[in-house]
Every structure is written in structure tokens, then in C-alpha cells.
Write a protein that binds this DNA or RNA. Structure first.
Ligand SMILES: [Zn+2]
Ligand SMILES: [Zn+2]
Ligand SMILES: [Zn+2]
Ligand SMILES: [Zn+2]
Lengths: 144, 144
DNA sequence: TTTTAATTGATACTTACTATCAATACAACG
DNA sequence: CGTTGTATTGATAGTAAGTATCAATTAAAA
């Protein structure tokens, strides 16, 4: 019986695969991300790791975004958020009340985009989509 | 024969409808936006209108976004851009090379979103979608 | 014309980063 | 192992995109 690799190792391996050094600081940032289960801000991580310089936190987050270990997205007002990336290709739903971020897969969106060659001139090189919601918890909570 | 109202008037009327005062500064910001035909940054407008305070430029842009006169969106790297809103409900294509912004209408996306109730828990209250492209001009230009 | 609340703008502050660069440490090599 | 060299770090300062403050001004209703 093979044990599934821990997410931590996945992230470290992704950095190694990119030819980067595995430093104590990078391990700490990865560990801090794994400790959370929802979305977070760069500042969340920086405050959780006083021993790691802010610049290093931001640099590491950028590396992890490039390595597809985490996603960077934005609240409706533009506030940047990060979220662990668990599924191959996906989009995000963001609760406008509590900020909870969920991933969802939907190939329909991709198919629609491919069919938009009539409406969109040029070559499509990427897209971003975020769905803003009020999550079940917030809908059911009294004060809202 | 009725003349179509100028876009300028539309914008001013939208502000009036919101119960706001029509000031010289707001007229200047609206006029500066009309003078451009593509996307622009807040800083573009502020630099074009040295006689209008920066805070007022930002305040007015926010009012115009709320009044649906302009749209606020973001380049892939997150840089915020503004774009005149000409079509009722729409999404945006952004050229990653030259930054040109176009609006496009596509009801398929909206239909897809409504059908995502299975994948997305909670009540959908909004969404954002941007398609990143290389526009015809940039594809045809030699140095790219 | 008077009045008054909305608006303005100079300034300072905030957030989310990025650039610099000397000091440090990973990891490859012998 | 120890040496080495480059990647990485972090303190500091700077940038981009705003927001908060508040006294002075002004649109527009009365
Ligand atoms: Zn994600
Ligand atoms: Zn919620
Ligand atoms: Zn638009
Ligand atoms: Zn282009």
C-alpha cells in the first residue's frame, strides 16, 4: 500500500522541479499554507512567520503561484487573496460575506470560451473567472 | 428626428440620477474619458487633468463605476484598468501585449453560471470574467 | 440671495507589493 | 567532510493604487 505524498512534499517537489533551492524559509511558508484550509492573504502568512522576512514571503508566494501550488485571485473590491490549488484546472467561488474560497471544475466554461472565436478577435491566451456567492454558512447565519 | 444623446450627457445624467452634484471637476473627468476610446488607468486621467485633484479623480472614477458608466477590470498581473461601458451586460477581452480592451456580449456564460448550482454551494451574487488575448494588431505586428 | 450640505484638494496614511544590495546559506563538487 | 559559488535572504527604501482627514469651497434648493 503506497502512502499518498503529503501536500507539503508536493509543493516542495514543485519548487525543486523548477530548479530552485529548498530553504528553511520556503519550507516555513509552505507549512503555513498547509496549516490553513481556505483562502489567505500574503499578510496572513507574513504575520504568522515573524522569523521570515516579508519580501521572502511575497517572493515565495509568487513562486508557488507560478508552480501552480497556489492560486492568486481577488475579492470583488480587488483585495488579492491566495488559495491552495488542489484541482488541475478550475475556477473559484468567493463568498462576499465571509471570504471563503472554493474551487470548482467546469468544462462548460472552457468550451464556451473556445466557441467565442466569433465574438473575440485574436488569439485567446488565458482567462480568469470568479463567481461571487453568499455561502451556505453565511446564508444560514442569523446576523447577515 | 431625435438626435442621439452624446455619451457625455449619458454619464452626466447617470450622476444626476444618483442624486449627485454636477461639478466642473466631474465634467472634466467625464470629458477626459470620452476623449479616449480604449482602456485607461486612473493615473492617465489624473495626469491629463492637473487642475483636478488626484483624490477627486479616484472618487469620480468610483462613482462612474457604480453608475455603470465605466468598468473596472485588471490586467493578468492585477494592474487595474478602466474601460468605458457601452453594452448592457458584457465581459472583457484584454490583449496581453498592447493592453487593448474590448467588450463582448455572450449570454452562454450567464447560462453556464446559472447551471452551476450543482457545483457551487450558496447563492450566486455576481461574477467576473476576463479573457486574455493577443489581438489581431499584435499578432500581425512584426516585433512580437 | 441666502443657506447648507455636498464636494474638493492638500496632506498624510494604507495596502500590496518590488528594487537594492550586502550578508548568508544551500548544494554541488572534489 | 570542506570549499566554493551562486541562489537566496532581509532590512530598507521606493512604487502603485488608492483611502482618510478636514478646513475651505461651491452647487443647487429654498
Ligand atoms: Zn484555485
Ligand atoms: Zn460565507
Ligand atoms: Zn466593460
Ligand atoms: Zn494587442
Amino acid at each position: 500500500m503506497t502512502t499518498a505524498p503529503t501536500p507539503q512534499l508536493d509543493a516542495i517537489i514543485a519548487l525543486e522541479d523548477a530548479g530552485l533551492r529548498i530553504t528553511g524559509q520556503r519550507r516555513q511558508v509552505v507549512a503555513a499554507i498547509e496549516r490553513r484550509d481556505g483562502g489567505f492573504t500574503a499578510e496572513d502568512i507574513a504575520m504568522e512567520l515573524p522569523g521570515v522576512g516579508r519580501a521572502t514571503v511575497y517572493r515565495t508566494l509568487k513562486l508557488l503561484v507560478t508552480a501552480d501550488v497556489i492560486c492568486k485571485l481577488a475579492l470583488p473590491d480587488g483585495t488579492p487573496m491566495y488559495s491552495p490549488s488542489r484541482v488541475e484546472h478550475h475556477h473559484h467561488s468567493v463568498c462576499t460575506t465571509c471570504g471563503a474560497i472554493e474551487e470548482f471544475r467546469d468544462t462548460t466554461v472552457e468550451r464556451v470560451l473556445r466557441s467565442l472565436t466569433r465574438e473575440i478577435e485574436g488569439e485567446i491566451v488565458g482567462h480568469r473567472m470568479e463567481v461571487f456567492i453568499r455561502c451556505q454558512t453565511c446564508l444560514e447565519s442569523p446576523g447577515a
